[in-house]
Design a protein around this nucleic acid. Structure first.
Lengths: 232, 232
DNA sequence: GCAAAAGTGTTTGGATTACACCCATGC
DNA sequence: GCATGGGTGTAATCCAAACACTTTTGC
């Protein structure tokens, strides 16, 4: 019989990895760091850190996100947890992945004590990462795509004021498909977005109408109309 | 600055909880245990156990499932991970929830060293559980419902040979809705199920045609036809 | 025959598709 | 004027909802 003393179980470490997605120039990108320390020093990786003894999982991810971007109040979504016994060369480290969506142009990512360098890499151009981080990234990106289909999270990645073509190109990239412009606009008719009084500036073609997500109306629709967001 | 020695992080424990769902008499039920030991002795809880030092998360859930049901080869799906610092009275225990779907009538659940009693409780009749297990159950049930909509997991809960009315009632229970029989049958036309030569027995009305899920055709359709399962 | 549930067909309106066309701006 | 993308209308088609109806069994 496989018998182990209770105390022997308290020899684990637990970490949180924070996969940060953004959208720019028609591509979904992920914020990666170049590791400043061993193991996997100088290799690209998903930002992450050990969880403090009195810290909740979500709070750890928020801390990691803050150290890297100085941003607070960003929604974090839990993703998969990875715990293969040998996934970390220095011991048993189980990691819980989270993901955050943000607007690439709204802040500046800083190098930090554990990140020598940071960079936005388009999802389809990511090469070999440290640890099992390629597996974590793929799994988390799948969950992002799932969320994009059933929740209005696209607006966290789009600029505050966006054009319908930008929104369309985000979905085209995520779902790896091409959509008809006219039909896309009909499809999103039921989504609560506000037409702004502003238009695009400095473009060498007809400037597009700007929109923003109508959070208040969204909440109201959920409560009163049994509304549920859907994009496929 | 919040500085902690690296070794101090190795003071966690990690567990796996296994939420087992089944379907019978028009209701989705969950297999709960009455705890045989402290803490929360004699209270109802989700079966779970600490993870061994060299054990993968999934393997731990499989072990728990096996100890309780003697079943192997059951698909397990990862659900949410819970890690509030105070969720376990005896220390920092982070738990990763998994769920399994099975056919209630195909086996007999046994009491074990850590389970004084086991019982199938319909999801809507579950009362107060040990630890934060009500939260875990609700979160996991939500994920199950999400899976039912996009993957053919309903066939893991239905009898091997099922009637279309049974399948319909499973979806009606999960999505809390009432469906039209004729429309339901049209909707599932694209799902690969085999019409068997058998019919229902011992019913006091017209016996229903029996069907079973066509796993081979499903795999083939995914590969060749870009098929994706959908039920809403 | 009656109750109960299985099983099917038809109509209708709304959504999805494909495609054509016009509009505003910079150069 | 023309290149570039923004923006809209229409007709054909598909799909989903509503509802009525027939069938087969036990008693």
């Amino acid at each position: 019989m496989y018998k182990i003393e209770f105390d022997n179980f308290f020899t684990y470490s637990f970490s949180s990895d924070c996969v940060i997605f953004g959208f720019r120039d028609g591509e979904i990108s992920v914020l990666l760091i170049k590791r400043a320390m061993e193991p996997f020093k100088d290799q690209w990786a998903i930002p992450g850190d050990l969880i403090y003894p009195d810290e909740d999982l979500l709070d750890a991810s928020k801390r990691i996100l803050f150290e890297l971007t100085q941003l607070t109040d960003i929604d974090l979504h839990q993703a998969e947890t990875f715990g293969k016994p040998n996934r970390h060369p220095q011991g048993r480290v189980i990691t819980c992945a989270h993901f955050a969506l943000l607007r690439i142009d709204d802040f500046h990512a800083e190098a930090s004590s554990w990140a020598k360098e940071v960079a936005w890499i388009p999802i389809h151009k990511v090469t070999e990462l440290a640890f099992d981080h390629n597996v974590i990234l793929n799994s988390t990106y799948d969950l992002l795509k799932q969320k994009l289909a059933i929740e209005p999270v696209c607006f966290d990645m789009l600029p505050e004021k966006f054009t319908l073509s930008e929104m369309q190109s985000l979905y085209e990239y995520a779902f790896d498909t091409v959509m008809d412009k006219a039909n896309f606009r009909k499809k999103i008719k039921s989504i609560p977005i506000k037409k702004l009084s502003e238009k695009q500036q400095n473009v060498k073609h007809r400037p597009a109408q700007l929109f923003s997500f109508d959070q208040d109306k969204f909440k109201e629709m959920i409560e009163t109309d049994h509304y549920s967001f859907k994009m496929y």
